[in-house]
Amino acid sequence: MCSYCGCESVTVVGRFMAEHVDIINACGDLRRACAGADAQVTSRAVGRLQDLLQPHTSAEEAGMFTVLAEDPEFTEHVRSLCAEHAMLDALLAEIGQGRTATMPAFERALRVHIDREENGLFPAAAIAFAGPEWDRVVALTPPAAAPAPA
């Protein structure tokens, strides 16, 4: 996770980065569940990860991504990150349908995606945005979801 530029001190960015930690931890639980080959345990792990991932990606897209995409410099990058959100959802759904061989591809894609946000988009937003843009991001970003049970 990024820690070099201080962008995590921006409240909404700090929230998204903390959610990334929870998502990665739940991904580890899912990887272990898939390796254990217990369908019920895997299903619960998929559900927990979906409960973390869906509100997180929705919040990113509704707030920060919306405001960033208004700048032509960021439009295509934001579009590609949104496409990655959809791809991650599809891969996770495959795992939820019992295709656990998809797990390595899902985890790799998730980690690359988070790296692109934390080491690319978030620092860029911290540089590009002044007060008014952050105010809009905060106004458009839904509140954090209640933590999902472990």
Rank of each mutant, 00 (worst) to 15 (best):
A45F: 06
I24V: 15
P142Y: 02
M103V: 14
A45V: 06
R136K: 15
A105L: 12
G14E: 06
C2I: 14
G36T: 10
C7F: 12
P123C: 11
P149L: 02
L68W: 08
R116C: 04
S80R: 01
I127R: 15
L92E: 03
R116T: 04
G131W: 10
A33L: 13
R108A: 08
T102Q: 13
C2E: 15
T75K: 09
F106H: 04
R116L: 13
A145H: 05
A37M: 14
D135I: 06
S9Y: 10
C7H: 15
M103Q: 15
A145S: 12
L49C: 04
A145T: 03
T66S: 11
E61V: 02
P72D: 15
P132C: 14
I127N: 10
A150R: 08
R111D: 00
E60D: 03
G28S: 10
D135A: 15
R15S: 10
A125S: 14
A125M: 08
R79F: 00
V137S: 12
A139R: 15
V12N: 01
M17F: 00
M64H: 07
P72Q: 13
M1F: 12
A124N: 08
P147R: 05
D22E: 08
E60L: 00
L30N: 12
V13K: 06
S80H: 01
E61W: 00
Y4Q: 14
V67W: 10
R32E: 10
E133M: 13
T141H: 08
G120R: 09
C2H: 13
I114E: 04
R79S: 02
A90I: 00
M103T: 13
P72N: 13
A39M: 13
V112K: 01
V12S: 06
R108P: 00
P142R: 05
M64R: 06
E84L: 01
L30D: 12
G47V: 03
A150I: 02
D51F: 01
G96I: 00
P147N: 06
T102W: 03
D89N: 07
N25A: 12
H85Y: 01
G96D: 02
G36A: 07
G47Q: 08
C2R: 15
C82N: 07
A148F: 05
N119C: 14
G47Y: 01
A45Y: 05
I114M: 03
M1Y: 11
L68C: 09
R99Y: 12
V78K: 05
R116H: 13
G63E: 02
H85C: 01
A90E: 09
P147A: 07
P132Q: 14
F122V: 09
A130F: 03
T141K: 07
C7Q: 11
M64W: 03
P142C: 02
F106Y: 14
A83Q: 15
D71E: 12
E61R: 04
A126T: 05
A105M: 10
